Amino acid sequence: MTILLLAGTGDARRLAERLSGRDVVASIAGATREPAALPLPTRVGGFGGAAAFRDYLTEVGISAVLDATHPYAHRITERTATICAAQHIPYLQLLRPGWTPDTGDNWTEIASEEEAAAHIPLGATVFLGTGRQSLERFANLAGRFVICRQIDPPDGPFPLEDGMFLIGRPPFSVEDEIALFKARKVDWLVVKNAGGAASRTKLTAANRLQIPVLMLTRPPQGDWACVATIDEAIAWVDAL
Rank of each mutant, 00 (worst) to 15 (best):
L180T: 09
K192Y: 03
T80A: 14
G196E: 06
P154K: 14
P219N: 12
L95K: 06
I3T: 15
V126M: 02
L216H: 05
D55Y: 04
E34T: 15
A81G: 05
G156S: 11
I28L: 07
P219K: 07
G49S: 09
I3V: 15
F145K: 10
Q150Y: 04
H119P: 05
N207I: 01
L40N: 08
I151W: 08
I211R: 00
G156V: 10
A86T: 12
V126E: 01
P101N: 03
L122A: 12
A198N: 11
L92A: 06
V24H: 13
L38M: 08
A50E: 15
E161P: 08
I62M: 06
A183D: 01
D231R: 12
R33G: 01
A111E: 10
G46D: 05
F165H: 06
V174H: 04
P35T: 05
A117D: 02
L57H: 05
W224V: 10
A85D: 06
G168W: 04
N207A: 07
T77R: 08
T9R: 12
H88Q: 13
G61Y: 07
Q87R: 12
G222I: 15
A7N: 10
R184M: 13
F181E: 01
R184I: 00
G30A: 09
R184S: 04
I151F: 05
P170T: 10
L66A: 12
G123N: 07
A29I: 09
A197L: 05
G49M: 09
G196R: 04
E136I: 04
A117F: 02
R18M: 03
R218S: 07
P101A: 05
L38H: 07
L15H: 01
L209G: 01
N207K: 13
V146R: 11
G131A: 08
G129Q: 02
V25H: 14
L57K: 08
L19R: 10
L141E: 00
G156I: 08
A86R: 15
V65T: 02
A233F: 09
G98P: 04
H119F: 14
V213I: 14
Q210P: 00
R144Q: 08
K202F: 00
A118Q: 14
